[in-house]
């Protein structure tokens, strides 16, 4: 039980996917025009990630090592098709808002990255805990970034007006540049926190640089 909590909770802060692991940046930038979209995207990713981790972990000893990435992609793609059909049936407006980023969950590095780094090596219950934790961390990040951009860019939160008629929204925040700049500044803030922590422990912060896209194992495809 304790080990399950450990794998679950690491995704919530210590290894929160987009902000620490740099996984899944495309949807993080693209669907965070509003908190609602961010939340919806996050829920879809939780569904796919928890189930793909579970399935991959179940059959991890059957998959031949050489074709494992192709298998991971096939499993993730089947789950994404299921999500697409469910969203078309029950949350059609959200499905239209998210646009091509629903099918693109397939190539979201979080799915492949967690499959390769965790689910392919660990038992089922830990893999589900890892998938849920990472998914919830991803959802929190997207909702936070979406809320930030929505509040500043439209003056609303989850569609409710906050400031009254005198507020002048900063349109920059809901356009593409605002997405890049606000994500960049959040990452810088996360860096600053870990540098502070390293300094307090008396370590040299330059020894533990922020991971680049190396943590995305999708890129390692076909390498070994």
């Amino acid at each position: 039980m304790a080990s399950m909590w450990k794998e679950f909770s690491k995704g919530l802060w210590a290894e929160i996917p987009p902000f620490r692991l740099m996984l899944g940046l495309c949807p993080t930038l693209a669907v965070t025009k509003s908190a609602n979209n961010g939340l919806g995207m996050g829920l879809a990713v939780i569904f796919v990630l928890a189930l793909s981790n579970a399935v991959i972990s179940l059959i991890r000893n059957i998959i031949p090592k050489k074709v494992r990435i192709a298998c991971y992609i096939a499993i993730a793609a089947s789950l994404v098709v299921a999500v697409e059909l469910l969203m078309q049936a029950y949350t059609y407006p959200l499905y239209q808002q998210l646009g091509i980023f629903v099918p693109l969950i397939v190539v979201n590095c979080i799915i492949l990255g967690r499959a390769e780094a965790f689910a392919g090596k660990n038992p089922v219950h830990l893999s589900i805990a890892d998938g849920l934790g990472m998914g919830i961390g991803f959802t929190m990040s997207l909702t936070f970034l979406g809320a930030l951009r929505e509040v500043l860019g439209y003056g609303t939160l989850f569609g409710h007006g906050l400031f009254g008629p005198d507020f002048h929204p900063v349109h920059f925040m809901v356009e593409a540049p605002g997405a890049f700049v606000s994500l960049g500044l959040i990452l810088a803030g996360m860096n600053l926190l870990s540098i502070r922590k390293a300094l307090r422990r008396g370590e040299n912060p330059a020894d533990n640089p922020m991971p680049g896209c190396e943590s995305c194992r999708g890129c390692a495809m076909g390498r070994d």
């Binding site: 740099m22 356009e175 593409a176 540049p177 605002g178 997405a179 890049f180 700049v181 994500l183 960049g184 500044l185 990452l187 810088a188 803030g189 860096n191 600053l192 540098i195 912060p205 330059a206 640089p209 922020m210 680049g212």
Partner: peptide, 23 residues
């Protein structure tokens, strides 16, 4: 650069500025 901006954060802010000029 400030240590916290090095690498990806700086690249993202640059991408934001480039995106503005492309707009």
């Amino acid at each position: 650069l400030p240590l916290s901006m090095k690498g990806v954060p700086a690249a993202l802010v640059l991408a934001g500025i480039m995106s503005m000029s492309f707009m």
